[in-house]
């Protein structure tokens, strides 16, 4: 069934959205937990979206709607376009057809204008290997216009299980540690939309537990979209999008 296009006027990410992104107060305690000031009223609308690589159509006519508090799981075999779909939601790629809109209090915007809303974790997300973890986070906080002191950054590192390793260069990190740092990068600005591509890849059991905690916290505060091959991760889903047949 063809749905009508979203009846919203697109523009730059509304100022209200940045205001709504009132950051959490980090709290100490075990297990690490994330707290948000309030739930963001948010809606993601995907309408008739298609993506292709060269001549190959990866997927087409994808339409769905995700609301604040919900988790969407994107599943499908290798090459079905799960990662591509998340890149479209993050604004890192343009869809070949269709429209993606984030609606928040104060207006609506396309993914390209929704950078303050989005946190993205993916295996192909790379941070700077020649910088330390703390330098990486300090840099990304600075370019996002956040004012963070070292104590706050250390606390964030501790929350993702990298306490005491903040002064090590990423070149010395294992793949699991790099994955944990990706979470710190994605959560730095407390985004109401969290996009997770293969969220537990390379993580150990404790890391997987951390992801559980994060996803639960994110659902309370905004929305989460997970691309996965792992059938166990379907348990997070309020909605499931199956790509590739």
């Amino acid at each position: 069934m063809q749905r009508p296009p979203p009846a919203v006027e697109l523009g730059a990410c509304p100022t209200d959205v940045a205001t709504v992104l009132a950051p959490s107060r980090f709290r100490t305690g075990s297990p690490p937990r994330l707290c948000y000031n309030r739930v963001v009223k948010l809606r993601l609308t995907v309408e008739g979206v298609a993506a292709r690589y060269g001549a190959r159509l990866v997927f087409h006519d994808v339409s769905l709607e995700v609301r604040g508090g919900e988790a969407l799981v994107v599943s499908g075999p290798n090459g079905s376009g799960k990662s591509t779909f998340l890149r479209l939601l993050a604004g890192l790629q343009r869809p070949d057809a269709g429209v993606i809109v984030y609606e928040a209090p104060g207006g609506a915007c396309t993914p390209r204008d929704a950078l303050p809303l989005i946190g993205w974790v993916a295996p192909d997300l790379m941070l700077y290997r020649d910088l330390t973890a703390r330098e990486n986070l300090r840099f990304f906080a600075a370019v996002r216009g956040l004012r963070c002191d070292d104590q706050a950054l250390d606390l964030l590192l501790e929350q993702v299980g990298l306490g005491g390793r903040g002064n090590d260069r990423l070149a010395t990190y294992s793949s699991g540690m790099a994955q944990r740092l990706r979470y710190a990068y994605a959560l730095l600005h407390r985004p109401p939309v969290l996009l997770l591509d293969e969220p537990t890849v390379t993580l150990d059991e404790r890391g997987a537990g951390l992801v559980d905690t994060l996803i639960a916290a994110q659902r309370r505060a905004g929305m989460v979209v997970i691309a996965t091959n792992d059938p166990r991760e379907l348990r997070y889903a309020d909605l499931v999008l199956r790509l590739g047949g």
């Binding site: 730059a12 940045a18 950051p23 709290r27 370019v143 004012r147 706050a152």
Partner: peptide, 17 residues
């Protein structure tokens, strides 16, 4: 201890554009 003293938080994001 569970709720703990609130650590210095990341301050409100400023839209850089």
């Amino acid at each position: 201890k569970d709720t703990g003293p609130e650590a210095p938080a990341v301050e409100r994001p400023v839209r850089t554009d």
